[in-house]
Design a protein around this nucleic acid. Structure first.
Length: 486
RNA sequence: CGGGACGUAGCUCAGCUUGGUAGAGCGCUUGCUUUGGGAGCAAGAAGUCGCAGGUUCGAAUCCUGUCGUCCCGACCA
């Protein structure tokens, strides 16, 4: 422990590469994103973590509105009799449903499920609202919490109660529903890559990974530093399954009564977990600027008897706020180095140092969080009257740089295998996204899972030349990414 | 849900083997000096040892149960 090289860079955060799990948990807690609570498997989302969630909401909500959706809110509790109507759905969720059995001292005649997802209660309401093809489509999103009785939990990645949004739409035709499903998958992909700076593979889930009750499930999948994949959002084409179970019918223009076609799609705070793992380093979080609750933090440097820098920071911060930036002045009574370390842990993209020398010169020092200490690109000095432009440019640069870094990792850890032995080895060793022509059979997938722990993450059409499944030798029907998953 | 580890001050942990009434570092409070990568000195506050039983004159320590956290596996939109 006396060797400085063996000391952790940040107190109480272990090196990321050595033990991703320990690093991840420590960062979530030390950056004050979340706290464990007295409730098993449930975390408190602290203000800084909630700031991340609000930025996710802001961007996604705008995208939902732009694609014609409206927000609404449905009940938390679902009567058991309603839940039982879609057999596959019930079977899929039964092990994870929590039940309300009493109201006060009185035992209920019918148990109430705490929603694990809201297809049921929303489907029941849509059945009441839809009569004519003129009532379609219904395009509604809900921001909500849901509860699933999980056995093993980790902050954001899997918690019993979690925050998410769930879109639920009903359409007059299968084609329109499918179009909606794919459109929202695109919205998620756009968000993940352009806002959270997390590159993903978008595609179709295999039958065994499909949402219970869906005709087709699409997902975006991100790759974590340990080579495991993380499903970051899903979009489901539910066909007429739920419409038939919950009687969502309409009189079409041809005077025939028809069942509607429904979709559902969701992204949860798990996306934050992906962002944390993909970008973080040994100093803590690195938050992409578009997601950062604080884009830049001012650290004034004092000199005995000279506190001009504090006022200079506040003045500059005020101007930046008026220009639309999210900035903070850290004027606490602490050493600058202490503050640097703390804001590093919390992943603020830019630090702005103003000291006596800067006050005299009318400048500020900008320090990029995405660059290492000692990197010549880490610090630049800019004139105060150009601060807004400089920050705008740097934030854009950091946003792009984080994405490029993650993209390079994904690409260098996406391996196209053509030989069975090498394929199975890559799956077992968590080499990343293992890309093969695949037969699409559940038995083949189950066999790969049993011998390596990996499953298909998602699939896409063949590129043309491939003919046989690398895993089993049967004719290939799609290309698939295999990986172990969170 | 199976296998393993852990739970002592806000944090990281020592003490437990061999029972005797609570410790360290960091953090926190106050004052002074400091401040361009986790400052220094001085004084001070802070823990029903996760919880519940049991054994014992006496339990952080031994036994049982329980709750929680982490790791591996199983399961899991």
């Amino acid at each position: 422990m006396s060797d400085p090289a063996l000391q952790p860079v940040v107190k109480e955060i272990p090196p990321k590469a050595a033990d991703l799990s320990a690093w991840y948990t420590a960062v979530c807690l030390k950056a004050e994103l979340a706290s464990y609570s007295p409730v098993r498997g449930c975390v408190v989302l602290r203000p800084y973590g909630y700031g991340l969630w609000e930025n996710l909401q802001k961007h996604l909500d705008r995208a939902f509105k732009e694609t014609g959706h409206e927000n609404a809110y449905f009940p938390l509790l679902i009567p058991e009799s309603l839940l039982l109507k879609e057999a596959e759905h019930v079977e899929g969720f039964a092990p994870e449903v929590a039940w309300v059995t009493h109201g006060g001292q009185e035992e209920l005649t019918e148990r109430l499920a705490i929603r694990p997802t809201s297809e049921v209660i929303i489907g029941v309401m849509y059945a009441q609202w839809v009569e004519s093809y003129r009532d379609l489509p219904i395009l509604i999103n809900q921001w909500a919490n849901v509860l699933r009785w999980e056995k093993a939990t980790r902050p954001f990645l899997r918690t019993m109660e979690f925050l998410w949004q769930e879109g639920h739409t009903a359409h007059a035709s299968a084609a329109e529903a499918r179009e909606e499903t794919e459109k929202m998958l695109g919205v998620y992909r756009e968000f993940a890559e352009n806002v959270a700076a997390v590159p993903v593979y978008a595609g179709v889930k295999s039958a065994s990974e499909r949402f219970p009750g869906a005709v087709e499930t699409f997902s975006i999948e991100a790759l974590m530093p340990d080579g495991k994949a993380l499903q970051s959002a899903t979009s489901h084409d539910l066909g007429q399954n739920f419409a038939k179970a919950y009687d969502i019918t309409f009189l079409d223009a041809d005077q025939q009564i028809k069942h509607a076609y429904t979709t559902s799609w969701g992204m949860s705070w798990r996306m934050l977990g992906a962002m944390i793992m993909v970008h973080g380093d040994d100093r803590g979080l690195r938050i992409p600027p578009k997601m950062a609750p604080i884009e830049a933090v001012f650290v004034p440097i004092l000199r005995k008897g000279d506190e001009r820098s504090v006022a200079a920071c506040h003045d500059a911060a005020k101007a930046l706020r008026e220009a639309g930036f999210r900035v903070k002045v850290d004027d606490r009574d602490q050493q600058p180095g202490w503050k640097y370390a703390e804001w590093d842990v919390r992943g603020v993209p830019l630090r702005i140092e103003i000291g006596p020398r800067d006050v005299d010169a009318g400048t500020a020092v900008l320090v990029r969080r995405d660059r290492a200490k000692g990197d010549p690109e880490q610090k630049i000095t800019v004139p105060l009257d150009r601060l807004a432009q400089s920050i705008r440019e740097l934030l854009d640069l950091i946003q792009r740089s984080l994405y490029d870094e993650a993209k390079a990792f994904l690409e260098s850890h996406t391996v196209r295998e053509t030989e069975r032995g090498a394929f199975l080895r890559a799956c077992k060793e968590r080499a990343g996204m293992i890309d093969i022509p695949w037969c699409g059979s559940a038995a083949c997938e189950a066999h790969v899972k049993a011998s390596t722990g990996a499953t298909t993450r998602n699939t896409r059409p063949l590129e043309g030349a491939e003919s046989l499944c690398v895993a089993c030798g049967e004719p290939a029907t799609v290309r698939a990414y295999f990986a172990q998953s969170y």
